[in-house]
């Protein structure tokens, strides 16, 4: 049995629309170890949600198509599973928390029924028992048991997200996929929900893929970090490696664009330019047009992820020069 609960290799996902082919994910590879949390960081449009949906084989088809690659969940390839196997796996071995709690719940079913449904699908218990278990789950996420009879519209955003978490964790999955779980919430509620998630993951000994564009959240909750750009991983390693010994110019740009509390009044430093149009990706490195270190070679060749020490990998041609290092690392 491998150490990794999840292993994705060379995943390629396209969306074939009338206006053209959107190359959402272009040769993605990463792994998540058991009981570990991986933060997947990137801007909107980088392909993060598509990656998460692929793990459940839920990419909407049409127009989405998983072109190639393998996704090993606990050793079994998700992309080769039959519909029945997928239905057994979803919610049971892997669960997902979605971004917008306001729309993630069925408006015409009670909250208790929606949690109980998860139980009834995977465990052989009567519906009464399932509902009782649902009430316990509500308690676990900090909601009064009596509210199991209420409908989603009677809850606030933060509470709905807790319900979504309850649904996800009911069958004690081995891997939790969280797609920007706190983005749609108020800042104060964000902290509460994150704390709750951390606690539950720790006590249930689950692995988690946390998708976010918020570096602060990653720093607080994740063991490992993967940085995604234009459908590929450009840097991956432990949180310490990526934050303190940054390798990729894009990651550097992300850190630089964060406002610095100590140097208030200074101008913000955004990364110049825009992410490339996924229907029209450049031949070489996707980041080259915006990269301050780019050379001619970068525009022609796509860099591969290479191991740079420890568990830290980066996809950047600059490192062919052994002396190269980012400006950020010069200043320490």
């Amino acid at each position: 049995m491998s150490d990794n609960i999840l292993e994705i290799k060379d995943l390629v996902v396209h969306y074939e629309t009338d206006d053209g082919c959107v190359n959402a994910v272009n040769g993605l590879s990463f792994s998540i170890g058991r009981k570990k949390t991986l933060g997947l960081v990137g801007e909107t449009g980088a392909g993060k949600t598509t990656t998460a949906l692929s793990i459940l084989n839920l990419v909407p088809d049409p127009p989405g198509k998983i072109k190639s690659g393998s996704i090993l969940l606990d050793g079994r390839d998700v992309l080769q599973m039959t519909d029945k196997e997928l239905e057994e796996m979803r919610g049971n071995d892997v669960a997902m928390i979605f971004q917008d709690p306001m729309t993630a719940l069925n408006p015409v079913m009670t909250v208790g029924d929606q949690i109980a449904e998860s139980i009834e699908l995977h465990q052989h218990v009567s519906s009464k028992e399932a509902f009782e278990k649902a009430k316990e789950m509500l308690k676990m996420v900090g909601i009064a048991e009596s509210r199991a009879y209420d409908y989603p519209h009677q809850f606030s955003g933060g509470m709905r997200q807790r319900v979504v978490i309850a649904i996800a964790l009911t069958c004690k999955p081995k891997l939790l996929l969280s797609d920007e779980p706190t983005t749609a919430l108020d800042v104060t509620i964000q902290a509460q929900v994150l704390e709750l998630m951390k606690e539950l993951i720790r006590s249930q000994q689950m692995s988690m893929l946390l998708i976010t564009h918020d570096l602060g959240v990653v720093a607080e909750t994740c063991d490992d970090v993967a940085v995604m750009y234009a459908g590929k991983i450009v840097e991956i390693g432990t949180a310490d490696e990526v934050f303190n010994h940054t390798l990729h110019p894009y990651t550097e740009g992300l850190f630089n664009s964060l406002p610095n509390l100590r140097e208030r009044g200074e101008e913000l430093i955004p990364i110049k330019g825009l992410m490339p149009d996924p229907m029209n990706l450049p031949e070489g490195c996707a980041f080259a047009p915006r990269c301050p270190y780019a050379t001619e070679a970068c525009e022609k060749t796509q860099p591969e992820l290479t191991l740079m020490g420890g568990t830290h990998c980066v996809a950047c041609l600059a490192y062919r020069d052994a002396q190269f290092s980012l400006r950020r690392n010069h200043n320490g």
């Binding site: 459940l56 049971n92 979605f98 917008d100 729309t103 993630a104 069925n106 449904e117």
Partner: peptide
Amino acid sequence: DYITTAKAKGASHHRVIYTHALRN
């Protein structure tokens, strides 16, 4: 979105269409 949630729970196609989609 709640249809995707239902699928992610492992609900069968039939259940998704009738219990979730049609009722709404």
